[in-house]
Simulated scan of single mutants.
Amino acid sequence: MSWYFDNVYELNKESPYTFYVPSSEVLDKLKVGDLVKLIFVNKEEEDDGFSGERMWVEITQINGEKFVGKLDNEPYRLPLKSGDEISFGVENICDTEYEDPTSSNWDFYFDTKVTVSDDVLEKREFNFMLRDNPNGGDDSGWSILSGYEDDDFLSDSENFQFISIGVILNIDDSILGFIQEPPLCAYERNDEGEFNKIDDYDWDAYLNG
């Protein structure tokens, strides 16, 4: 069984609001003796779905953005053992033991929940958003639609998911400009691809319908 390291910057590029990478402030603090987490990927996915492991490595040498360390975990399946010497780069570090000053942003991306239609997730496109009063917990009150859903689709709760807002930001992060606006508000994408606020949205019909 052969393996390689995932490049966390490439993964973050694909999913910038749902794949965390340590900030430069954290990476600049790293020193010999610190623990960092790396993603060890199996080159060929196993029949049972096993594709790799995230494991801690203790840094023993630092040379710019290149590191040497020793494995601090006992692998579940990969052909390695605790104490093995590991060479890696800063691009392979997916986590550290340091508190990250950007953690509040990531908490928002992961913990803020929105209601999204399956059509949005299938098309990776959304054109209408409205914010009702939240139902408590992590609910933001936002509902997000593609704009192509018909009445039958909208009337079936099975066609909606309650997910982290980071998933939606991965599709289009232009909404960050108004995502903190309080309820009640509604936005629609115009022909130029930009979101405009619907000032005359019929909230009475929506709330009492």
Rank of each mutant, 00 (worst) to 15 (best):
S2N: 13
W3L: 00
Y4S: 04
D6T: 09
L11K: 03
E25Y: 12
V26L: 01
V26W: 11
D28T: 03
G33H: 11
F40A: 06
V41H: 02
N42H: 11
E44S: 13
E44D: 07
E45Q: 06
E46H: 12
D47S: 14
S51N: 07
G52S: 04
W56A: 01
V57A: 01
T60S: 09
K66M: 07
F67E: 01
K70V: 01
K70F: 02
N73C: 05
Y76R: 14
K81P: 11
G89Y: 03
V90D: 11
D95I: 08
D95N: 15
E97R: 15
Y98E: 04
Y98S: 05
D100H: 04
S103N: 15
S103T: 15
D111F: 02
V116G: 02
V120F: 08
R124H: 14
R124D: 10
E125M: 13
F126R: 06
F128W: 07
M129D: 12
L130Y: 13
L130N: 03
P134C: 13
D138G: 12
S143Y: 13
I144G: 01
I144H: 07
L145F: 07
Y148M: 02
D151C: 00
N159V: 14
Q161E: 11
F162M: 08
S164G: 13
S164T: 05
G166T: 10
V167A: 06
I168S: 07
L169V: 11
N170I: 08
D172M: 10
D173M: 12
L176Q: 11
G177V: 10
F178M: 07
L184P: 08
Y187F: 11
Y187I: 05
R189P: 10
R189H: 06
F195C: 00
N196V: 14
I198L: 06
D199T: 10
Y201F: 15
A205D: 11
L207N: 13
